[in-house]
């Protein structure tokens, strides 16, 4: 299944097409990555559509909140109680869709 006529865009280009009104003051996601060290599944890394979770060499999880779709996938797939704390960003901030 490959078609040379379909050039795939980079993930950065993909995310660059989306408007995010970033809240500089507060991260609406927090990860307690002491709980991630003994997590064998780490579903957030694969499942987060915005690719906000990255494993660190030390065995923890590095996270970003700025380009978040606010979908909730990460905390739903997280199997370590309390590892991911997730709320909505402050009103008026976060993702803004226009053509979805």
């Amino acid at each position: 299944m490959s078609s040379p006529s379909y050039p795939e865009i980079s993930f950065e280009t993909r995310m660059g097409a989306v408007e995010f009104r970033v809240d500089e003051d507060r991260a609406h996601i927090t990860v307690d990555d002491t709980k991630c060290r003994d997590c064998s599944t780490r579903g957030c890394i694969t499942a987060c559509p915005a690719n906000l979770f990255v494993p660190t060499a030390a065995g923890g999880i590095l996270f970003n909140y700025e380009q978040c779709f606010e979908c909730g996938t990460c905390y739903l797939v997280c199997n370590r109680e309390g590892a991911i704390t997730w709320t909505y960003p402050e009103g008026g901030h976060g993702v803004v869709f226009h053509r979805s």
């Binding site: 299944m1 078609s3 993909r14 559509p49 996938t73």
Partner: peptide, 30 residues
């Protein structure tokens, strides 16, 4: 997810429908 989506877009039944287009927005929701 975006890799799975890429694979569907390269399927011979889908590729001719979508090729040449520009991604205007990407979105996700549960």
């Amino acid at each position: 997810p975006e890799e799975l989506l890429r694979r569907m877009k390269t399927h011979p039944a889908i590729a001719p429908l979508v090729e040449g287009g520009e991604v205007l927005e990407y979105s996700a929701h549960v």
